[in-house]
Nucleic acid binder design. Sequence first.
DNA 1: TATGAATGAGGGTTCATTCAT
DNA 2: CATGAATGAACCCTCATTCAT
Lengths: 220, 220, 220, 220
Amino acid sequence: MKYIMKNSPAISKTRAAIMEAAGKIFAEEGYSKATVRDICRQAGANIAAINYHFRDKKGLYLAVLNHYQEISFQSYPPDFGMKETKKPEEKLHAFIKSFLLRAMDEGRPAWFGRLLAREFTEPTWAFDILVEETIRPYFQLLTGIVSELLDKRAKKRKVRLCSMSIIGQCLYFRHSHPVISRLYPGESFGRKHIDELTKHITFFSLHGLIKEKKSSKAKK
Amino acid sequence: MKYIMKNSPAISKTRAAIMEAAGKIFAEEGYSKATVRDICRQAGANIAAINYHFRDKKGLYLAVLNHYQEISFQSYPPDFGMKETKKPEEKLHAFIKSFLLRAMDEGRPAWFGRLLAREFTEPTWAFDILVEETIRPYFQLLTGIVSELLDKRAKKRKVRLCSMSIIGQCLYFRHSHPVISRLYPGESFGRKHIDELTKHITFFSLHGLIKEKKSSKAKK
Amino acid sequence: MKYIMKNSPAISKTRAAIMEAAGKIFAEEGYSKATVRDICRQAGANIAAINYHFRDKKGLYLAVLNHYQEISFQSYPPDFGMKETKKPEEKLHAFIKSFLLRAMDEGRPAWFGRLLAREFTEPTWAFDILVEETIRPYFQLLTGIVSELLDKRAKKRKVRLCSMSIIGQCLYFRHSHPVISRLYPGESFGRKHIDELTKHITFFSLHGLIKEKKSSKAKK
Amino acid sequence: MKYIMKNSPAISKTRAAIMEAAGKIFAEEGYSKATVRDICRQAGANIAAINYHFRDKKGLYLAVLNHYQEISFQSYPPDFGMKETKKPEEKLHAFIKSFLLRAMDEGRPAWFGRLLAREFTEPTWAFDILVEETIRPYFQLLTGIVSELLDKRAKKRKVRLCSMSIIGQCLYFRHSHPVISRLYPGESFGRKHIDELTKHITFFSLHGLIKEKKSSKAKK
DNA sequence: TATGAATGAGGGTTCATTCAT
DNA sequence: CATGAATGAACCCTCATTCAT
């Protein structure tokens, strides 16, 4: 006699194949443009298998999100191995690097990052769930770092604005390929340049923030 | 005495209504999600009218892009009325403000900005045209300003990186509403806060750039 | 004061342009595949002009048929200039040549021939009219020639069968290009070979008929 | 013991119904005039079933062609049961009879013949496939017979011309109904007269060919 | 005379979904 | 566990036609 675990992922080969294909295609095309047909074709599975294993397209998307989130954060921990005692400048550097890696890398571990980046600029119905489960703690991590860097009396709103300036830069470099490759053929900001990009964004942001500290007294 | 504009849009009432509805719906839904059925329904027009006036959905999208681009840049000139002799800091401020206005305002003049923002993160077939006709000159305007602010010996790549950091911030604040409203209910970075956002992005970016100047001597 | 002639063809330039384009396109594509859009575009005329001048697509087709029929039979008279006193073999040769010319030539004079050939294998609603106005007298001309060649006591049905054997050959060589060019690349039976084809069909048919004469006594 | 045919059609009832309806309608209307809506309506199937079973209209047409070709050539073998040792005259007779049966019969077995006849006079995109798979071997069968009948030194071109004269007659009698019924009401050359028509075409053609033999010495 | 504008019907195709097995 | 079969809704597009000017 055998007991079947609920949602046990190892039981079904088909389920795994669908998850694999779905992760890839959702990351490439986005939720609405991806078709269950393509996913099943690529997984070598029957269309009805999605209904059986995941109820419907939404269920599949949710399962993909949950599954690859774990993989993603295992592969690229947000603190990037930094201890809590480290300086905030280094924390910021680590945060940005892990963000870029998660969003710009290729293969399985980056699929979640791509989906997340997509949801940031074009939210689907799954966005509410993502905000609570992933984005909020992630964002709090960033605002914590920013708070340390800013004047302690800085208002919450200022912290948030600065945090979003950082997120915005990271996100944009992720989407920049189409425009950069057209504006300056031959040049690119891809996963090969993650170290360069990390250094740039950190530098660009940090010196703005430091300056903030000084000028915060003089200015309004 | 009156001069007739080329492609005078006043000729057909239906054509104008379709352009109106299409601008709104394309801006809201994006190219692929928008349906000609919806557009025609909202315009009170027959579906075949699109074939008659614009050949097909692509033609309509192109017409919308062209039409609202003019309106957008008339309403929000990139130099925002600044003379050439002004300081680069003020030029940057003007650039950012016009960008935000164009992307975050509501109603007709902002539709092009929204479409452009969409194309930045999820390009369609029209992106190639947009790059040549709109984005390239627009981007050159920004890199020019950034060049003035940076050390004159700064490499092209650095100029481009910094320019993209600025664009990235602007774009992200345009998309931030869904995430902000969920993370911090009650707070928002909308069109009401354009002045605040402009000031923030300018300040955040400027002091990064200025610091660069200083450190450029010490560093490599 | 001016009197307008009914259907006067010289009055309108647009009407003439439409007739020209329609003749060409109907001959190329056939009635149902041809579109009024294409015709008007090629004629440089407005779509509504067809409604004005010809009531509808049917009216246009009818007008084209009538117009080019005259041109066709002027260019290629069925007796091909043969006097009535000539031998039936030469009459047959002339008939076949004029048929092939009318159906296989290019340009205006052949358009009617092409349309007629089309109607033979895929009749439209206009076929009834064509039968009475064109095909019947034309067919009677052929059956007359065949009668002269056959035994005088040959039954009507035999005359008709033989006539159709001749028509069938002519028609098929007109349609043969697609199959011949594929079966035997480089070879063709086109308008350049009309003389060869005429000789062949005449010869092939004649000797069948002559043999008939002889055997008609022996046979039932 | 039973062998399962490749592409066994018995699997799906809907698929069979669509094939049935499609065969009928394609044969009646031709490829372009036939609509998938009509076919599905007549088959009592959903429109999307065509996409499921045949991918699209083209796939359906191809499937119909393949399916009824088998049925057609099973029902009417081109050699019509003649042994190889028989005289060429009898081979020709058999060839013509099977051609007429295939093209003029009614019901399922004749649908392919009708489609083929249509492709001969108005080729679609499928014509290239048909030429290679069906028409070429079929035509070679005929040219072989004709070669036997003609002088052995007859040029290839002559063989081809004579073969086409035969094909042309057969094809035309298949299309003759509309014109015959109008020219001579009451008379017809239909499937009831296949024996008569076979005899006529064979006779008409044979004596032409035989005469060729004799005259080939005397004439040029 | 001539046309720009508009329309309704219908074309093929594709989607996510759900049965019955 | 898994799938072949089937479906209804919606997609974009094109047709011939007609109206008001």
